[in-house]
Amino acid sequence: MYVAVKGGERAIENAHAWLAEERRGDTRVEELSLAQIREQLSLAVNRVMAEGSLYDPDLAALAIKQARGDLIEAIFLIRAYRTTLPRFGATAPVDTGEMACDRRISATFKDAPGGQVLGPTFDYTHRLLDFKLAAEGDAQEAASAEPRDAPMPHITEFLQGEGLIQSEVDDGREPRDLTREPLEFPADRPLRLQSLTRGDEGFILGMAYSTQRGYARNHAFVGELRIGTCAVEMEIPELGFAIEIGEVELTECETVNQFTGSKTEPPQFTRGYGLVFGQSERKAIAMALVDRALRWKELGEDNLGAPAQDEEFVLSHADNIQATGFLEHIKLPHYVDFQSELELVRKLRREAGEARKEAAE
């Protein structure tokens, strides 16, 4: 049985020391450097940046190392650090149409202007363990291509030119910032997209998969998936114009979805949208599918009662830090609560036993 831990602060300090020892592992094995994590575990780094809402590969690598590879713990560390940073301005919206693409594919048009750029992808691998990677120092020289610097128009622009897809309208309102304000319902689409971007990849994936299996009746095509770098610009009041302050790697996905029309809208395609830090195409596609499922009300569609259509259910449970905190708090001391439950069960058992005796007599 569990008993109260004695020792207090000393016990906690010893637990921290033991954790540090476990994190380091066998000292005969060379320690991982942040550069190794950043460069060779880049997809893990990308996930931590996306769900931690902070684009900094070095800090994400540090968080992964400190968390012993537990990505949710690393995301927690990044979010906690983010809250300590001063905010001195806001950048202009990035233009993904100007993205220098490493990868750009479409499942809707074979001969898209700009071409299909396969880029670095697992899609065509055989999913067999490569034991050459176990041979230390056996570095394979890879053939790499330069990113496409020429602007690639979005595939959906061609559909929009014919009026075949719903136009995205900017209502001019400043989007609420989910990193500074609590989530409130009903949530508009910009707020939903922020929540989905920060949401747990596994949860968003599960929700997206449910829509493909009929729980939302929402068949989608990947109109375009692109990965590359975008310039980040910031308006400088003293200068009177914007200057480029850096660049970020992004994954963007637009899905093309069927829409039969309504009393005010003709039959046309609609969109789902996903945008994530780094190379995170599974997350971006899943996000686009869930985004489209959540748009049922504004598009005048029927709510089929699917989980992915329930805004409050999806957004309230997508955040893995909130979920982890609530789940893991039950391992902390609950002695008083349990004793009250224990006394209640004992009382009920006594009353039930006395009732059986009376019935037997």
Rank of each mutant, 00 (worst) to 15 (best):
C253G: 01
R10S: 15
E98C: 02
T270W: 10
W296V: 12
A139H: 01
L59A: 14
D177W: 00
Q268C: 07
T156H: 08
L289V: 01
S195R: 13
L129R: 15
A50C: 12
E238V: 02
A208R: 05
A187G: 03
A143M: 04
E136R: 11
A107I: 02
A60Q: 07
R38N: 11
N14W: 07
G115C: 04
R192A: 02
P120Y: 01
L77C: 07
A288K: 07
A286Y: 00
V169L: 10
E162N: 12
A288S: 15
M99K: 03
Y209F: 09
E235W: 09
E184P: 05
V5R: 09
Y335E: 14
E9K: 10
L183P: 11
S53N: 13
R282F: 05
I243K: 15
R292L: 03
G97E: 15
G25S: 12
E174V: 02
G8S: 14
T270F: 08
R79P: 09
I321F: 07
G274Q: 03
A220N: 08
Q166P: 04
I330L: 13
P93W: 00
V248H: 13
I105A: 01
I78G: 13
P151M: 00
L77P: 02
G52K: 10
A112E: 13
G89V: 06
E312M: 08
V94N: 03
P333F: 05
P147N: 02
T197R: 13
D171R: 06
E351I: 00
A107V: 05
G89E: 11
T179Q: 15
V276W: 01
D177V: 01
T121E: 05
L225Q: 09
L77F: 11
G300R: 12
D291S: 00
D123I: 00
R79F: 05
P307I: 02
G214L: 07
S33R: 11
H16E: 15
E30M: 10
R346C: 06
K110G: 14
C101D: 12
F122C: 04
M99I: 03
V94M: 04
V314C: 02
K110H: 14
A60T: 07
C253Y: 04
A216K: 03
F88L: 14
G25I: 08
F76R: 14
D95F: 04
E181Y: 08
D138C: 02
I321H: 11
E281Q: 14
Q309L: 00
S53M: 10
L193R: 06
R176M: 04
R87I: 11
Q339K: 12
G325N: 15
E21H: 13
T255R: 02
L332V: 08
P190I: 01
G261Y: 08
G274S: 05
E301A: 07
D111T: 06
A100M: 09
I75H: 09
D177L: 01
K110R: 14
L348C: 08
D291H: 01
M1R: 13
G199I: 00
F185Y: 13
D337P: 01
A44E: 11
V117L: 12
G137A: 06
L62M: 14
P333W: 04
P57V: 02
K347M: 07
E162L: 15
M152T: 05
D70E: 12
A318P: 01
D310K: 00
E265N: 13
K347A: 07
E233I: 03
D138A: 04
H154C: 04
T84V: 00
V45E: 12
L19Y: 15
Y209L: 15
